[in-house]
Protein backbone atom coordinates (compact mmCIF):
# COMPACT_ATOMS: atom_id res chain seq x y z
CA UNK A 1 0.00 0.00 0.00
CA UNK A 2 1.44 3.39 -0.90
CA UNK A 3 1.20 5.89 1.84
CA UNK A 4 -1.29 8.45 0.67
CA UNK A 5 -1.46 11.46 2.95
CA UNK A 6 -5.05 12.41 3.57
CA UNK A 7 -6.08 15.45 1.56
CA UNK A 8 -8.53 16.68 4.13
CA UNK A 9 -7.47 17.07 7.73
CA UNK A 10 -8.53 13.98 9.66
CA UNK A 11 -11.86 14.60 11.27
CA UNK A 12 -13.09 12.83 14.32
CA UNK A 13 -16.09 10.80 13.19
CA UNK A 14 -19.19 11.06 15.36
CA UNK A 15 -20.02 8.05 17.48
CA UNK A 16 -21.79 5.28 15.68
CA UNK A 17 -25.10 4.39 17.30
CA UNK A 18 -24.92 1.18 19.33
CA UNK A 19 -27.49 -0.60 17.17
CA UNK A 20 -25.42 -0.45 13.97
CA UNK A 21 -23.67 -3.80 14.52
CA UNK A 22 -27.07 -5.46 14.71
CA UNK A 23 -28.26 -3.62 11.64
CA UNK A 24 -25.14 -4.74 9.80
CA UNK A 25 -25.60 -8.32 10.83
CA UNK A 26 -29.28 -8.33 9.92
CA UNK A 27 -28.64 -6.69 6.58
CA UNK A 28 -25.92 -9.19 5.71
CA UNK A 29 -28.09 -12.13 6.69
CA UNK A 30 -30.97 -10.86 4.57
CA UNK A 31 -28.63 -10.25 1.64
CA UNK A 32 -27.12 -13.73 1.92
CA UNK A 33 -30.54 -15.28 2.05
CA UNK A 34 -31.68 -13.18 -0.88
CA UNK A 35 -28.64 -14.26 -2.90
CA UNK A 36 -29.42 -17.92 -2.22
CA UNK A 37 -33.07 -17.39 -3.16
CA UNK A 38 -32.22 -15.52 -6.35
CA UNK A 39 -29.75 -18.24 -7.25
CA UNK A 40 -32.44 -20.88 -6.81
CA UNK A 41 -34.90 -18.80 -8.83
CA UNK A 42 -32.46 -18.44 -11.71
CA UNK A 43 -31.87 -22.19 -11.56
CA UNK A 44 -35.55 -22.67 -12.38
CA UNK A 45 -36.91 -23.12 -8.88
CA UNK A 46 -40.54 -22.39 -8.16
CA UNK A 47 -42.05 -19.85 -5.81
CA UNK A 48 -42.20 -21.18 -2.28
CA UNK A 49 -39.23 -23.48 -2.79
CA UNK A 50 -36.77 -20.74 -3.64
CA UNK A 51 -37.45 -18.85 -0.42
CA UNK A 52 -37.81 -21.82 1.90
CA UNK A 53 -34.94 -23.73 0.28
CA UNK A 54 -32.17 -22.04 2.30
CA UNK A 55 -34.24 -22.41 5.49
CA UNK A 56 -34.84 -26.10 4.88
CA UNK A 57 -31.16 -26.51 4.13
CA UNK A 58 -30.24 -24.83 7.39
CA UNK A 59 -32.74 -26.97 9.34
CA UNK A 60 -31.28 -30.05 7.70
CA UNK A 61 -27.74 -29.27 8.76
CA UNK A 62 -28.87 -28.45 12.31
CA UNK A 63 -30.17 -31.96 12.87
CA UNK A 64 -27.40 -33.71 10.98
CA UNK A 65 -24.42 -35.64 12.27
CA UNK A 66 -20.92 -34.47 11.56
CA UNK A 67 -19.10 -36.58 9.04
CA UNK A 68 -15.89 -37.94 10.47
CA UNK A 69 -13.07 -38.67 8.11
CA UNK A 70 -10.05 -40.77 8.97
CA UNK A 71 -7.66 -38.84 11.22
CA UNK A 72 -8.83 -35.30 10.56
CA UNK A 73 -7.14 -32.30 12.11
CA UNK A 74 -10.29 -31.18 13.88
CA UNK A 75 -9.09 -27.85 15.35
CA UNK A 76 -7.84 -26.74 11.95
CA UNK A 77 -11.11 -27.62 10.26
CA UNK A 78 -13.18 -25.86 12.90
CA UNK A 79 -10.95 -22.80 12.75
CA UNK A 80 -11.11 -22.72 8.97
CA UNK A 81 -14.86 -23.19 8.81
CA UNK A 82 -15.57 -20.54 11.45
CA UNK A 83 -13.07 -18.11 9.94
CA UNK A 84 -15.12 -17.88 6.77
CA UNK A 85 -18.22 -16.06 8.16
CA UNK A 86 -16.03 -14.26 10.70
CA UNK A 87 -13.84 -12.84 7.94
CA UNK A 88 -16.89 -11.79 5.95
CA UNK A 89 -18.53 -9.96 8.87
CA UNK A 90 -15.28 -8.37 10.01
CA UNK A 91 -14.61 -7.15 6.48
CA UNK A 92 -18.05 -5.57 6.48
CA UNK A 93 -17.56 -3.49 9.64
CA UNK A 94 -15.76 -0.77 7.65
CA UNK A 95 -18.52 -0.49 5.02
CA UNK A 96 -20.89 2.46 5.56
CA UNK A 97 -24.45 1.33 6.17
CA UNK A 98 -25.71 4.70 5.07
CA UNK A 99 -23.24 7.36 5.92
CA UNK A 100 -21.31 5.69 8.71
CA UNK A 101 -19.90 2.22 9.11
CA UNK A 102 -19.84 0.21 12.31
CA UNK A 103 -16.13 0.97 12.70
CA UNK A 104 -14.87 3.92 10.69
CA UNK A 105 -11.21 2.93 10.62
CA UNK A 106 -8.74 5.34 9.13
CA UNK A 107 -7.23 2.38 7.25
CA UNK A 108 -10.57 0.87 6.29
CA UNK A 109 -9.50 -0.32 2.86
CA UNK A 110 -6.48 -2.11 4.28
CA UNK A 111 -8.65 -3.70 6.96
CA UNK A 112 -11.17 -4.86 4.36
CA UNK A 113 -8.42 -6.40 2.24
CA UNK A 114 -6.78 -8.04 5.25
CA UNK A 115 -10.05 -9.70 6.25
CA UNK A 116 -10.54 -10.94 2.71
CA UNK A 117 -7.13 -12.55 2.72
CA UNK A 118 -8.27 -14.54 5.76
CA UNK A 119 -10.49 -16.38 3.31
CA UNK A 120 -7.37 -17.98 1.83
CA UNK A 121 -6.49 -19.20 5.26
CA UNK A 122 -10.03 -20.43 5.95
CA UNK A 123 -10.31 -22.44 2.76
CA UNK A 124 -6.86 -23.90 2.93
CA UNK A 125 -7.27 -24.99 6.56
CA UNK A 126 -10.62 -26.58 5.84
CA UNK A 127 -9.37 -28.32 2.74
CA UNK A 128 -6.22 -29.54 4.41
CA UNK A 129 -7.63 -30.39 7.82
CA UNK A 130 -10.27 -32.94 6.89
CA UNK A 131 -7.59 -35.24 5.50
CA UNK A 132 -9.39 -36.18 2.34
CA UNK A 133 -8.30 -35.76 -1.23
CA UNK A 134 -11.09 -33.81 -2.84
CA UNK A 135 -11.09 -31.07 -0.18
CA UNK A 136 -7.29 -30.93 -0.41
CA UNK A 137 -7.51 -30.41 -4.16
CA UNK A 138 -10.14 -27.73 -3.54
CA UNK A 139 -7.65 -26.05 -1.24
CA UNK A 140 -4.95 -26.18 -3.92
CA UNK A 141 -7.37 -24.65 -6.35
CA UNK A 142 -8.18 -21.76 -4.06
CA UNK A 143 -4.54 -20.97 -3.42
CA UNK A 144 -3.97 -20.89 -7.17
CA UNK A 145 -7.04 -18.70 -7.50
CA UNK A 146 -5.71 -16.37 -4.84
CA UNK A 147 -2.46 -15.96 -6.74
CA UNK A 148 -4.49 -15.03 -9.80
CA UNK A 149 -6.97 -12.57 -8.33
CA UNK A 150 -5.33 -10.98 -5.31
CA UNK A 151 -2.93 -8.58 -7.01
CA UNK A 152 -5.46 -7.10 -9.47
CA UNK A 153 -7.91 -6.92 -6.56
CA UNK A 154 -5.49 -4.95 -4.41
CA UNK A 155 -4.67 -2.57 -7.24
CA UNK A 156 -8.40 -1.97 -7.81
CA UNK A 157 -8.87 -1.14 -4.11
CA UNK A 158 -5.84 1.14 -4.09
CA UNK A 159 -7.11 2.95 -7.16
CA UNK A 160 -10.33 3.87 -5.38
CA UNK A 161 -8.37 4.95 -2.30
CA UNK A 162 -6.03 7.03 -4.45
CA UNK A 163 -8.97 8.68 -6.20
CA UNK A 164 -10.35 9.81 -2.85
CA UNK A 165 -6.97 10.45 -1.23
CA UNK A 166 -7.97 8.41 1.79
CA UNK A 167 -8.01 4.87 3.03
CA UNK A 168 -11.13 5.57 5.09
CA UNK A 169 -14.05 3.89 3.31
CA UNK A 170 -16.58 6.56 4.30
CA UNK A 171 -14.31 9.24 2.85
CA UNK A 172 -13.95 7.27 -0.39
CA UNK A 173 -17.74 7.18 -0.62
CA UNK A 174 -17.96 10.89 0.19
CA UNK A 175 -15.39 11.72 -2.51
CA UNK A 176 -17.85 10.47 -5.14
CA UNK A 177 -20.50 13.15 -4.63
CA UNK A 178 -19.75 14.59 -8.05
CA UNK A 179 -18.99 11.49 -10.05
CA UNK A 180 -19.03 7.78 -9.24
CA UNK A 181 -15.64 6.12 -9.35
CA UNK A 182 -17.21 3.40 -11.47
CA UNK A 183 -17.60 6.02 -14.18
CA UNK A 184 -14.19 7.61 -14.18
CA UNK A 185 -12.20 4.49 -13.24
CA UNK A 186 -14.20 1.81 -15.06
CA UNK A 187 -11.25 -0.56 -15.43
CA UNK A 188 -10.71 -0.66 -11.68
CA UNK A 189 -14.42 -1.28 -11.17
CA UNK A 190 -14.47 -4.14 -13.68
CA UNK A 191 -11.35 -5.66 -12.14
CA UNK A 192 -12.93 -5.32 -8.71
CA UNK A 193 -16.05 -7.21 -9.82
CA UNK A 194 -14.02 -10.04 -11.37
CA UNK A 195 -11.81 -10.36 -8.32
CA UNK A 196 -14.81 -10.11 -5.98
CA UNK A 197 -16.32 -13.16 -7.66
CA UNK A 198 -13.00 -14.97 -7.32
CA UNK A 199 -12.59 -13.95 -3.69
CA UNK A 200 -16.05 -15.21 -2.80
CA UNK A 201 -15.31 -18.37 -4.84
CA UNK A 202 -18.62 -17.87 -6.50
CA UNK A 203 -20.10 -18.63 -9.90
CA UNK A 204 -17.56 -19.07 -12.65
CA UNK A 205 -14.79 -18.96 -10.04
CA UNK A 206 -16.31 -21.62 -7.79
CA UNK A 207 -13.93 -24.38 -8.84
CA UNK A 208 -12.44 -24.70 -5.33
CA UNK A 209 -15.86 -25.98 -4.28
CA UNK A 210 -16.76 -27.31 -7.72
CA UNK A 211 -18.96 -30.32 -8.34
CA UNK A 212 -16.24 -31.93 -10.45
CA UNK A 213 -14.31 -32.60 -7.23
CA UNK A 214 -17.41 -33.60 -5.28
CA UNK A 215 -17.82 -30.17 -3.71
CA UNK A 216 -14.10 -29.54 -3.20
CA UNK A 217 -13.21 -27.92 0.10
CA UNK A 218 -16.66 -28.62 1.57
CA UNK A 219 -16.89 -32.22 0.26
CA UNK A 220 -16.58 -33.79 3.72
CA UNK A 221 -18.45 -31.18 5.73
CA UNK A 222 -21.84 -31.97 7.16
CA UNK A 223 -23.99 -30.81 10.01
CA UNK A 224 -23.07 -27.53 11.73
CA UNK A 225 -19.74 -27.37 9.90
CA UNK A 226 -21.47 -27.24 6.54
CA UNK A 227 -24.06 -24.78 7.77
CA UNK A 228 -21.40 -22.35 8.99
CA UNK A 229 -19.33 -22.82 5.84
CA UNK A 230 -22.25 -22.25 3.45
CA UNK A 231 -23.49 -19.28 5.47
CA UNK A 232 -19.99 -17.84 5.35
CA UNK A 233 -19.86 -18.33 1.62
CA UNK A 234 -23.05 -16.37 1.00
CA UNK A 235 -22.08 -13.72 3.54
CA UNK A 236 -18.78 -13.28 1.75
CA UNK A 237 -20.57 -12.85 -1.56
CA UNK A 238 -22.88 -10.27 -0.01
CA UNK A 239 -19.93 -8.39 1.50
CA UNK A 240 -18.05 -8.44 -1.80
CA UNK A 241 -21.10 -6.89 -3.46
CA UNK A 242 -21.67 -4.41 -0.64
CA UNK A 243 -18.08 -3.15 -0.78
CA UNK A 244 -18.50 -2.16 -4.42
CA UNK A 245 -21.04 0.47 -3.34
CA UNK A 246 -18.87 2.80 -1.21
CA UNK A 247 -15.76 2.08 -3.27
CA UNK A 248 -17.13 2.64 -6.77
CA UNK A 249 -20.86 3.41 -6.82
CA UNK A 250 -21.02 6.56 -4.72
CA UNK A 251 -22.08 4.98 -1.44
CA UNK A 252 -25.38 6.31 -0.16
CA UNK A 253 -25.50 9.23 -2.59
CA UNK A 254 -28.73 9.51 -4.57
CA UNK A 255 -31.80 11.67 -5.02
CA UNK A 256 -34.93 11.54 -2.90
CA UNK A 257 -34.23 8.41 -0.88
CA UNK A 258 -32.25 8.27 2.38
CA UNK A 259 -28.61 7.14 2.15
CA UNK A 260 -29.19 3.78 3.83
CA UNK A 261 -31.83 2.90 1.28
CA UNK A 262 -29.60 3.90 -1.62
CA UNK A 263 -26.81 1.79 -0.17
CA UNK A 264 -29.17 -1.16 0.12
CA UNK A 265 -30.53 -0.77 -3.39
CA UNK A 266 -27.10 -0.49 -4.96
CA UNK A 267 -25.85 -3.48 -2.98
CA UNK A 268 -28.80 -5.59 -4.10
CA UNK A 269 -28.15 -4.60 -7.71
CA UNK A 270 -24.46 -5.59 -7.57
CA UNK A 271 -25.33 -8.80 -5.76
CA UNK A 272 -27.91 -9.66 -8.40
CA UNK A 273 -25.31 -9.17 -11.13
CA UNK A 274 -22.86 -11.46 -9.35
CA UNK A 275 -25.51 -14.15 -8.82
CA UNK A 276 -26.64 -13.84 -12.43
CA UNK A 277 -23.05 -14.28 -13.63
CA UNK A 278 -23.03 -17.76 -12.16
CA UNK A 279 -25.80 -18.80 -14.50
CA UNK A 280 -24.44 -16.97 -17.49
CA UNK A 281 -20.86 -18.24 -17.46
CA UNK A 282 -19.21 -21.65 -17.30
CA UNK A 283 -16.52 -22.39 -14.75
CA UNK A 284 -13.16 -20.66 -15.12
CA UNK A 285 -10.11 -22.75 -14.35
CA UNK A 286 -7.04 -21.09 -12.93
CA UNK A 287 -4.60 -22.98 -15.15
CA UNK A 288 -6.01 -20.86 -17.98
CA UNK A 289 -7.17 -17.74 -16.13
CA UNK A 290 -3.91 -17.00 -14.31
CA UNK A 291 -2.22 -16.11 -17.59
CA UNK A 292 -4.92 -13.56 -18.39
CA UNK A 293 -4.86 -12.27 -14.85
CA UNK A 294 -1.12 -11.60 -14.84
CA UNK A 295 -0.72 -10.52 -18.43
CA UNK A 296 -3.88 -8.47 -18.82
CA UNK A 297 -5.60 -7.66 -15.53
CA UNK A 298 -2.51 -6.60 -13.59
CA UNK A 299 -1.14 -4.32 -16.38
CA UNK A 300 -4.51 -2.68 -17.03
CA UNK A 301 -5.18 -2.12 -13.35
CA UNK A 302 -1.70 -0.59 -12.97
CA UNK A 303 -2.42 1.62 -15.96
CA UNK A 304 -5.71 2.64 -14.36
CA UNK A 305 -3.84 3.43 -11.18
CA UNK A 306 -1.40 5.58 -13.13
CA UNK A 307 -4.19 7.49 -14.88
CA UNK A 308 -5.99 8.12 -11.60
CA UNK A 309 -2.74 9.15 -9.97
CA UNK A 310 -2.00 11.68 -12.71
CA UNK A 311 -5.52 13.10 -12.59
CA UNK A 312 -5.48 13.42 -8.80
CA UNK A 313 -2.11 15.18 -8.86
Amino acid sequence: MPETPPMTPPMTPPMTPPWTPFALFGALAVLAWGAAALDAALAGGRWPGIVTGPLRGAARELVRQRRRTVMPDVPLVRAGVCALPAAAVLAAVVLPLGERPVADLSVGVVWFNAMEVCVWWALWLTGWGVNSLHPLIGGYRFVAQGLAYELPHMFALITAALGAGSLRVSEIAAAQRGLWFAVWMPVAFAVYLVSAVAMAFWGPMDRPVGSDIAGGVRAELSGPDRLVFEAGRYLLLAVAAAAAVPLFLGGGVGPALPPWLWTALKTVAVLAVLVWARHRLPGVRMDRFTRVSWLVLIPVSLLQLLVVGVVVL
Partner: peptide, 13 residues
Protein backbone atom coordinates in the same frame (compact mmCIF):
# COMPACT_ATOMS: atom_id res chain seq x y z
CA UNK B 1 -39.67 -32.01 -7.12
CA UNK B 2 -36.88 -29.45 -6.97
CA UNK B 3 -34.59 -31.62 -4.86
CA UNK B 4 -31.09 -30.37 -5.61
CA UNK B 5 -28.49 -33.08 -6.19
CA UNK B 6 -25.74 -33.59 -3.64
CA UNK B 7 -22.11 -33.60 -4.71
CA UNK B 8 -20.67 -35.93 -2.08
CA UNK B 9 -21.88 -38.48 0.48
CA UNK B 10 -21.32 -35.97 3.29
CA UNK B 11 -23.67 -33.54 1.61
CA UNK B 12 -26.33 -36.12 0.79
CA UNK B 13 -29.12 -37.41 2.96
Amino acid sequence: RGWPAARSPAEAD
